[in-house]
Nucleic acid binder design. Structure first.
Lengths: 191, 191
DNA sequence: TATATACTGGAATGACCGTTACGCAAATAT
DNA sequence: ATATTTGCGTAACGGTCATTCCAGTATATA
């Protein structure tokens, strides 16, 4: 064995994730990532192989540390009747807080949906998979809230609420008020 | 007077618009724009001042020639009871046609919402204004279809349908099927 | 026909990009 | 204590970017 890594990979990825989140993949430059992570190019390339490699790690970290915890009450049984509403209100609070990353920069994945890097198949698939995960989670929350409704009805509702949430994410950067109204509309729909 | 312009500005802007649409602002390079327009850098800079100037012209052209015509049945009185449904179905057909720009590249403005250039205030405002115009148009279409509903109810519905449409635009690049389902959900909502 | 106008072509500029190469320093295993 | 593995710092690479400059040319007016 030789010299051991002196930084914690998770910490570095988290720092890089913040840069990608607020700047987007193509606008985030290597010097910026160096400064944010406190690592030099050589270490970044040695650890992640390329800028894309670092971005992929950032996306994985985002799914694991940002998205999954928020979705957990909707994905792990038992799902309470208030889980959907809690989720939507939590997100509303996040988008209403000017300090929060979500309010200022939306969703890392939704932002990349319209970015050039989304043309690369793997990235596009990651975005699509994320949306599907969100839809499934919302669907189970809706099922818990409206057990009496028909499956078709619930499916439509889940689709609509998913779209409202993604729309809020996509818009908060340029029109925070509209994003909040989207979530209000979602809250209306589920009741 | 001296020598006169040998190209039609509208035609050039339309060609540039197509490049921005499919490639995004930052990924569209000057050489690409030269090739698409058939003009040299000097002429482009002489006419539009900068890449941003050309982009602004492209956005204006997009609003005038692509968006406005589609919205017209919803914005100019009299608005028929079927106008909303026609609009949504027309859009659905567009997103379902693999040849169409809309299906392959979504909406020029929605794509820029998540792009770095959206950080520039004027661009962000243009996107927000577009969304608001869409919402107003859909609201008037919904009012024509459901004159019996309360204003509050119609407002919520308009908000939801707007979000579903923008969500469809934002996603079609990476997940065309999900975009279509969004529009189906919108069609469900208006009836 | 003369002249003013401004479009056009081509080359050059400086900055920044992501990536790579290399040598030294550090820390573990034998 | 030595050998070996690996992190890390520095510097350089080739390429592309948006932008500018200038000379040459075509055309509309007087």
């Amino acid at each position: 064995m030789g010299r051991v890594q002196t930084f914690e990979t998770d910490v570095v990825v988290r720092a890089a994730r913040a840069v990608f989140w607020q700047r987007g993949f193509e606008e985030a430059s290597i010097p910026e990532l160096e400064q944010a992570t406190g690592l030099r190019r050589s270490s970044l390339y040695n650890t992640f192989g390329s800028k894309r490699g670092l971005f992929d790690a950032a996306v994985a970290s985002y799914l694991r540390e940002v998205i999954a915890p928020r979705l957990r009450p909707l994905t792990e049984a038992p799902v309470g009747a208030d889980a959907v509403v809690d989720y939507l209100m939590g997100m509303r609070a996040g988008l209403d807080d000017p300090e929060a990353d979500a309010a200022r920069h939306g969703c890392l994945l939704m932002n990349t949906a319209g970015a050039p890097v989304a043309m690369e198949q793997a990235v596009g698939e990651a975005v699509a998979a994320y949306r599907e995960e969100l839809r499934r989670a919302l669907a189970s929350g809706i099922a818990a809230r409206h057990p009496e409704a028909g499956e078709r009805e619930r499916g439509r509702l889940a689709e609509a609420v998913t779209a409202l949430v993604t729309s809020a994410f996509a818009l908060t950067r340029v029109d925070n008020a509209a994003a909040l109204r989207s979530l209000d509309a979602a809250l209306d729909l589920v009741d």
